Amino acid sequence: MLLGLLLICVGWHTMPGGAEVVTSFEETCPRFFFRETPPRIGLTPAHLVRICQRYRNQYRYATMYDRPNYIPLYSAYIYNPGKAKRPQNWMVEPQLVHLSLQPEMTSEKDLLKKHITRAELRESQAVLQDYKNLIDYNRGHLNPNSHQSDPDAKKSTFTLTNIVPQYAKLNSISWKKYEQQTMQSSSQGCKETFAVVGAVPGNNYVAGGRVNKPSHLWSAACCYIDNNHIRSWAIIARNDEDVVEHLTLGQLEEKLAELYQQNGISLFHSDCPRH
C-alpha cells in the first residue's frame, strides 16, 4: 500500500491560519468534526495539506489533501441533505498553487487568469484533464453534493480536491445506495450527524501515472441524539468491485490501521461508540 503521507496530527507548518489552506482544523473550521476532534490517523512523510473548503465566503467542510497523490485522504462534513439542483461546474483550490492567491475555490479558467501557468496548476493538484477518458472509473465525491442542503453548499463539493478516481459501478450502485438510503435511515432521530469519508492510496494510477487510484474507499458517521445517546456506523469498499461492507466504527478503525499500517486509528472523539 502506498504510504507517501504526512503525519496528520502535526500539520503543514508553512501554512498560515485563517485561510482556506490552514495549519489547524481545530482553529479554523472545527465545527465539521464531532466534538471538534479531527481524525487521528498518524501516517508517514510527505505533503498532506489541510483545507477548510471555502465557497461564497463560508467554510463548507474540511479536507485533508494528499498532494503527491493528487487525491483527498478524507473529507469531513455535517450531513444535511437537500433537494437543490445538482451542480455541473468543477472548481480547484487556488492556495494549493500559491498562498498569495484567494482563499476561495474557483474554476480552472478563472484561476489561470491570475498570472499562473497551467503547469503550476497541474503541479499543485488534480485538474479536469486528469479525469477525462477514464476506463471503468469516474469522479467519486468524498463529500457528496446529495449530503448538502442548499445550492452553494452543493456547489462547494464540486472541487477536484474532494474527489478520487472511483470504480464507476461502485459509485453508481452500492456506494450510491449507502449515500442515499443507508445514511438517511441511520440518521433518523439525530440532531446532528458528522461524517468522515476517505480513501486508502493504492499502488496504481490514472491520468498517465499522475493521480493515485485508491485501493479502498471508506465512510464513517457519528450521530448525536442527546448527551446519553450517540450512535455510529461505517462501511468500506474495495475500489475495483461493487461491494460495500458494513462495519462498526471500531471495526473500520481496526481495518484502516492494517491498511495504513498504523498501530491505531481514531476517526472520531472517544465519546462516539465503537461497537
Rank of each mutant, 00 (worst) to 15 (best):
G4R: 09
Q148G: 08
K154I: 07
S215R: 05
K176A: 04
S215M: 05
G208V: 11
Y65E: 06
P16V: 07
W12N: 12
V244N: 00
S266V: 10
R40Y: 10
Q166T: 08
D152L: 14
I8S: 13
V22L: 07
S149N: 15
S124Y: 04
Q102V: 13
K132E: 15
L6W: 09
L256Q: 05
N171L: 01
S219P: 00
K155A: 09
K169M: 12
I236G: 00
F33V: 07
I236P: 03
R86C: 11
S75F: 04
T37R: 09
R122A: 14
P103L: 09
L170V: 04
H269M: 10
L259Q: 10
V164S: 02
S146T: 11
S149P: 09
L160E: 01
C222Q: 00
S219W: 01
L217P: 03
S172M: 15
D130H: 05
L170Q: 04
Q188P: 12
W218P: 00
I41S: 01
S107W: 04
Q129W: 08
Q181W: 14
K85I: 11
K132C: 12
L3M: 12
E123L: 10
D242P: 04
L142W: 03
I163S: 00
T157G: 03
D226E: 10
T23G: 13
I8L: 13
R118Q: 11
G209V: 10
V196A: 04
L48P: 02
T28I: 15
T44E: 14
I78P: 03
Y137S: 00
A195H: 07
I265N: 01
V197A: 07
R40T: 15
A46N: 14
A207V: 11
L259H: 05
V22Q: 01
T117Y: 04
L43H: 08
T37E: 13
D110M: 14
Y59W: 13
N227R: 13
Y131W: 11
R118C: 12
D152Q: 15
R122G: 11
T161L: 03
L99W: 06
A19D: 12
I230S: 02
N69F: 07
G42W: 08
A84Q: 08
R50Y: 05
A237W: 00
I71T: 00
Y167E: 01
N80L: 15
R40D: 14
V164D: 01
P214M: 02
L247Y: 02
P165W: 03
I51W: 05
L6A: 11
N138P: 07
G17T: 10
L6Q: 10
S75V: 05
V21I: 06
L217S: 01
A234L: 03
Y65Q: 06
T248M: 01
N171W: 00
S187R: 01
M105T: 11
A84V: 08
E120T: 12
C29M: 05
T63D: 00
W12M: 13
A153Q: 05
R122W: 09
R54F: 11
S185A: 14
T37V: 09
R56G: 12
Y55D: 01
L101S: 07
D66K: 00
P72K: 05
V97M: 03
W233Y: 14
S172N: 14
Y65M: 02
N204S: 15
E253Q: 07
Q88V: 14
